[in-house]
Amino acid sequence: MATLKRIDSLELDLFLKGIFTQQFAENHFDYTGKVGEVLAIGAYDGERLVGGILMRRRYDHLDIAKLAVARDYRGQRLGTQLIQAAEQVARDRHIINITLSTRSYQAVGFYEKCGYQIYGTLADLPFAGVTTTYFVKRLTAK
């Protein structure tokens, strides 16, 4: 019978990756080069960085990890331009879905205006009094 004990996270990660690689091979999935790509787009005013979007690819999925625009540059459609740029990057890579999350004090309405659909919310996450909202957008070829 197996016993449970603490293990080094890197050692366990390598072990689990081996299992997942085997599962992919058994099911004839080829995702070589489609995992772990980190993509970043910055918004500049001259040489000054004033906003940006950070994304991570996982198979046929793109997750927007962070998107922000400096306070003085909000309301100038930079966020919309960044989202549109992310969607183009995704289409160029044949991504099917884009996901992201935002907190109740951030940009729920913005993502809805950009065509993202809520697929879940969790109250008191990451701390009491804050709700995290999860969004998805399924891309179609353009």
Rank of each mutant, 00 (worst) to 15 (best):
T102G: 02
L125E: 07
R103T: 06
L49M: 09
V38Y: 08
G75A: 11
R71G: 08
Q117K: 14
I53S: 02
R103W: 00
C114T: 00
N97Y: 06
Q117H: 12
L62I: 13
G42N: 10
R77C: 07
D124P: 02
Y44Q: 04
G46Q: 10
I41F: 07
V38S: 08
A65Q: 15
G51K: 04
T80S: 14
K34P: 03
E37Y: 04
V89Q: 12
D72S: 13
D63M: 09
I41C: 06
E37S: 12
V89Y: 08
A65M: 14
G75N: 13
D60N: 03
G120I: 05
R74Y: 06
V89H: 09
G36V: 13
S104P: 05
G51D: 01
A40G: 06
K113R: 15
A90R: 08
Q88H: 12
A70D: 15
Y73G: 07
A90W: 03
H94Q: 15
D63R: 12
Y105F: 15
Q81A: 14
Y59N: 05
L49I: 04
F110P: 06
L67D: 06
Y44N: 08
V69M: 09
I64D: 02
I53R: 01
Y116S: 00
Y111D: 09
A40P: 00
Y116T: 02
R48Y: 01
C114F: 00
A90G: 06
A90H: 09
L62D: 02
